[in-house]
Amino acid sequence: MGWFKRLKDGIQTATRNKKEAPEGLWYKCKECKETSTMKELKENFYKCPFCNHHVRIGSQDYFGLLFDGNFEELFGDLVSTDALEFVDLKPYPQRLEEAYRKTGLKDAISVAKGKVNKRPLVVAAMDFSFIGGSMGSVVGEKISLSIDHCVEEGIPLLIISKSGGARMMEASFSLMQMAKTAAKLTRLARARIPYFSLLTDPTTGGVTASYAMLGDINFSEPGALIGFAGPRVIKETIKKDLPEGFQTAEFLLEHGFLDFIVDRKDLKDRMSDLLAIFDSKSAAASAGS
């Protein structure tokens, strides 16, 4: 027997141990161009230590930021299929393969159940790195299953959106995910289970126009781009430059579509406060004891 015989086949790193945050030792901020170390960036909740720019992070990073240690990933066995045999410059299966390889993820959303300051929460978080965070059948189904799970177990739901919109390669199927997710959310509402929608940079298109805008509470991170049409399309339509700050989280807050903007360092505390307020039963119980 050789010394280096591989005992287990395949990649053994759990998805949760893979990180989307920029690799390497140094981080140069896209906004202020200042350089900091990756360690500093990480310790600062993936925000630039100089200008507080919130760096785009992935689902696993959010799980790490929100949950008290352990969490359980749900519905990780769903993957996309090429139902329409869609070919543009590349066949869709090839795009999927490349996304699997690049991200180590199975689709543009991951769902996990864990505890936030001891209160249970199901978090469905999107990954922009997976085909632009686009919503296809898998994203729709995972949200649908998350809603069922939350209704069955009476656990609140947080969806962290980060998406360019519907996945064109699944064409009409991805369009129908707008109707599917919105329709399923009515069941969560009827069960009186709170739904929190965190819209992160960027959230546009069919995702904004379905579940992302339907939270009992809609909130965002500073500077996030949020809209229906993309800025380029709007610019082409009106043939003028867009005003400064258009379609930012701050713009949406001003126009009444967000409840608040939260700095990422306060995200867990804010979620924890909200969970405590909505969890009136256990709040009443602990007050009575």
Binding site: G10, A14, G76, D77, L78, V79, S80, T81, A83, K106, G136, S137, V138, G140, E141, S144, E170, F173, M176, Q177, A179, K180, A183, K184
Partner: peptide, 13 residues
Amino acid sequence: YAAMGVYERITPN
């Protein structure tokens, strides 16, 4: 609408 969508289930790692 809940039934709309095409996907596969893989054996979990």
